[in-house]
Design a protein around this nucleic acid. Sequence first.
DNA 1: GTCTATACTGTGATAGAC
DNA 2: GTCTATCACAGTATAGAC
Lengths: 206, 206
Amino acid sequence: MLENDSVSPTLAERRAEATREGVIEAAWTLSRSLGLTGWSMRELAKAVGIKAPTLYAYFDSKDAIYDAMFRQSYEQKGSSGDAEPYLAAHGERDAFKLAAHDFFDFCTDDPTRYQLMFQRTIPGFEPSEQAYAASQRSYERFAQQLAAVGVADQAHLDLWTAMISGLTAQQISNDPTGDRWRALVDTAVDLFCDHVGIPPTGDQNP
Amino acid sequence: MLENDSVSPTLAERRAEATREGVIEAAWTLSRSLGLTGWSMRELAKAVGIKAPTLYAYFDSKDAIYDAMFRQSYEQKGSSGDAEPYLAAHGERDAFKLAAHDFFDFCTDDPTRYQLMFQRTIPGFEPSEQAYAASQRSYERFAQQLAAVGVADQAHLDLWTAMISGLTAQQISNDPTGDRWRALVDTAVDLFCDHVGIPPTGDQNP
DNA sequence: GTCTATACTGTGATAGAC
DNA sequence: GTCTATCACAGTATAGAC
């Protein structure tokens, strides 16, 4: 690990960073075909074209690789699928439905990523402070989005989280290629909106 | 593995069965303190008072031990917490609430068991045909209970499953010692009952 | 500074003597 | 059935070549 506090990275640092990203990308590819814990450091090294011990020049441990993947996932989640643009263009219930489907699809699009982000499935792995902070920022953005449409009560946030993530989890583990629980998302959102007092779409003057 | 198709087991078989149960019990103890994947066959053997290779006289592999634990869990679930007795004694919504809390408490009482039963968390482990059959029987009992109170539509069953398991999962992973999501169970059940047309308690003549 | 060769420790699992 | 000895493989550390 180089130390260089100047503004522009040296060429060596840029090259090292490129290698790091290549390692992470290869780790994703292996994880999607063999499972998150289905590959060894030796296999990963071979996929990148280096020897296993060289990996330790870029990452302190296998868990550090998982950590980078974890953090990257939460940053991806932030940079796509924000529901806010919808709010101006749609009625409020439709905004909730779009937000729910955004999350649902983000999870089902990449079950391996979902497993890393939301299941505690890798023995011994716990996200570092920085990676955990990325997940916290993601939750904060989510909370602010719901606050923007009038849902600020913590209990309401928790109910939303449980309902949408519950549907998602069932879909991924019981019907990964189908739509059995996806088809229930709109119904669940309507139940939630009834509960928190969001008026039905088209009913703007209660 | 001995083969004896006669009705009464021999003394040797009974002793072997007792050892098997001791192994499983020790595996639970280790799993609860170190995590499901946090112990080795050598540690397990030491806890039972034998050498590691001797374990393989009782179980074909480590996964076979997980399999026995998995199956045992689903059989425990069948023999406790049936909601049927409640049905005669309570109004319908209260019966749903009791069933939901039964499931919720069964899961939060033993998060390790929950992890084995409902998360796919052990790398490479898949339940055997017999163990999977035990989990299927458990689901069938659940479906029949809901049918007995008038919920037979598959989509309704799926919505119930997603809501209650979603609350449970959030509780276990985000607030294992608290009540943050448990406090939402009754609300969720009411939303569900509103949706499927179960009248509120005390409203027997709609 | 980046890589390779080698080796250490612990894992699940097996072979074969008693 | 239970043991000792051993295997192949894992993650990882280190010494030293370039």
